[in-house]
Simulated assay, not measured.
Amino acid sequence: MVYKEILNGAFVVRNATLEDAIRMEFVQAKCFPTLHETELMNRNHFANHVKVFQEGQLVVEKDGLVIGSASTLRCDFPEHDSTFLEETDNLWITNAHITNGDWMYGIDMGVLPEYRGLGLSKEMYKARHEICKQLGIKGQIIAGMTIGYGKVSDQMSIEEYCKRLENNEFTDPTITPQQHAGFRWIRAIYDYINDPEAGNASILMYNPVDEKYYL
């Protein structure tokens, strides 16, 4: 389990509890305003995540108030593409979570807009890495949303955007920070999520706890 003061004690990152579910719902809604309502997690989803795999659910607190959260499940390495709803068992994770899975799949991470730019997401990634080590998990997998596509969607297709992003021709407000946090590109997944701002796409990435697990 995790409980750690971060950023000179201004914040705390810890495992989520059932009591956090309502506030996690609030963070989710504020962080993903363009995500389709069928893919937004609510308090019941977050509560079930805690019941299924509490070690993998995190929140960030400031002065006792949850201002960020992250949700995960355990899985085997994804050899084939799936949609966000398929990967998460329609957001519940009950049937998607593999108790002895080798990888931690990060299905959600958000920080309230007024607290962005402080490195809180990176701190949650670090905390998840420590959990992976504690549980003997090979590392983290994420499907990062190509959220920067919305600003250039009138100029190029999502396929071209992902290709140019892979070639480091420009940066993306989600994918680039995730790469700076240690995640490595696997492949683009099209029609992964219902969010026009991201072109409905995501980038599958991974960050192993040991070099021997690199592809």
Results as ranks from 00 to 15, higher is better:
residue 125 Y to N: 04
residue 115 Y to R: 03
residue 74 R to S: 09
residue 99 T to S: 13
residue 141 I to G: 06
residue 61 E to N: 05
residue 94 T to K: 03
residue 126 K to T: 15
residue 126 K to E: 12
residue 91 L to V: 02
residue 71 S to G: 14
residue 38 T to S: 11
residue 47 A to V: 08
residue 44 N to A: 12
residue 115 Y to F: 14
residue 97 H to M: 06
residue 46 F to D: 10
residue 121 S to N: 05
residue 108 D to Q: 06
residue 144 G to H: 02
residue 62 K to F: 01
residue 126 K to A: 14
residue 58 L to A: 05
residue 37 E to F: 05
residue 79 E to I: 13
residue 107 I to C: 15
residue 138 K to C: 07
residue 41 M to R: 05
residue 58 L to S: 02
residue 101 G to N: 12
residue 123 E to S: 14
residue 64 G to E: 11
residue 135 L to S: 00
residue 107 I to R: 10
residue 69 S to N: 15
residue 69 S to W: 09
residue 141 I to V: 15
residue 121 S to Q: 09
residue 108 D to L: 12
residue 39 E to M: 11
residue 118 L to V: 13
residue 115 Y to C: 06
residue 110 G to Y: 04
residue 145 M to R: 09
residue 136 G to F: 04
residue 43 R to G: 04
residue 79 E to T: 07
residue 76 D to P: 01
residue 50 V to R: 07
residue 100 N to G: 02
residue 53 F to V: 12
residue 35 L to A: 02
residue 60 V to F: 01
residue 105 Y to S: 06
residue 79 E to A: 05
residue 100 N to A: 09
residue 95 N to L: 10
residue 44 N to D: 15
residue 113 P to I: 08
residue 102 D to I: 01
residue 117 G to D: 08
residue 86 E to A: 02
residue 63 D to R: 10
residue 145 M to P: 00
residue 43 R to N: 12
residue 77 F to Q: 12
residue 67 I to Y: 01
residue 38 T to Y: 00
residue 77 F to K: 13
